[in-house]
Computed example of a mutant assay.
Amino acid sequence: MTALLVPALAGVLTGVSLGVYGELHKPTGYAVSVAGFSGPLAMKAWLTTGVFVLALAQVFSALVMWGRITLDLPWIGAVHRWSGRLAFLLSLPVAFHCLYALGAAYDSPRVMIHSVLGCFFYGLFVTKMLALPRKGLPGWALPVAGGLAFTALAGLWLTSSVWFFTTIGVTF
């Protein structure tokens, strides 16, 4: 358990720091945009959907790597690493826009849950990345961290992309 202490503390500090920054930072209102999208909300909805699809690949590849799904796929470790890297990169413009342009918000249940889940996800991400190279971790540590990260991403996707697509419509 001591091998997990430093990564967990770093993750908690990351999540809390993001939440405090989101609360104290005066939102700029300036939208971050990525070419090809009609606006920042569409960009966030589609990039978050991409992150969620890559997170599904993470879950599948982890199940194969941990022997829960029996398949002979010698390249599955590379799929797991690269889908995680791509998911993280796709999440950065979304997180930047949320924190910098909008800040944390607690005025509606959906937005509050979304804000808390975003901070929780990045805290888990830091915990998992710092725990990966450590020796002596309990066998349950990485699967639990990965499962919680996926759960947080599913919640983020439901409170952002699914909300956007069902409220505003499927637009690019």
Rank of each mutant, 00 (worst) to 15 (best):
D107W: 10
K44R: 13
A131Y: 00
L56E: 06
L102E: 10
C119W: 10
P109S: 06
S17I: 06
L86E: 08
K135D: 01
T14R: 03
R134Q: 05
V51D: 03
L137G: 03
L92N: 07
K128N: 01
P93W: 13
V34N: 05
H80R: 15
L54E: 01
L5M: 07
V51C: 04
G11S: 03
A3C: 10
G29P: 06
A31C: 07
T28Y: 09
S38Y: 14
L47Y: 09
M129W: 00
E23V: 13
A105K: 10
V59N: 02
V111E: 15
A8D: 02
Y21S: 08
G123M: 06
P109W: 10
G22R: 14
A95E: 07
T127K: 02
L5A: 04
A101M: 02
G22A: 14
H114T: 14
A8N: 03
W66V: 11
M65W: 05
L142K: 00
Y100D: 11
R134S: 01
S83W: 13
K44T: 12
A10V: 04
F88T: 15
E23C: 13
A105G: 13
A101K: 00
L4V: 14
L102C: 03
W46Y: 06
G103E: 05
L117A: 11
W140N: 00
H80I: 15
A31V: 09
Y21F: 13
R134E: 01
D107I: 08
A42E: 09
V59W: 04
S91Y: 15
L92V: 15
L99S: 12
H25N: 09
L137M: 02
A78M: 10
G136D: 02
A104C: 14
L137E: 01
V64S: 05
L9D: 00
C119H: 09
L99D: 12
L56N: 08
S33G: 14
K135M: 01
A141T: 08
G22Y: 12
L102M: 03
S33F: 11
Y122E: 05
E23T: 15
A78K: 12
L47D: 11
R68V: 11
A35G: 06
L99G: 15
S61F: 10
V34M: 09
I113N: 06
V116R: 04
A3E: 11
L41D: 13
W140C: 00
M129I: 00
L56Y: 03
S17H: 03
L73C: 06
F37V: 13
F120W: 07
T127Q: 05
I76R: 12
W82Y: 14
A131Q: 01
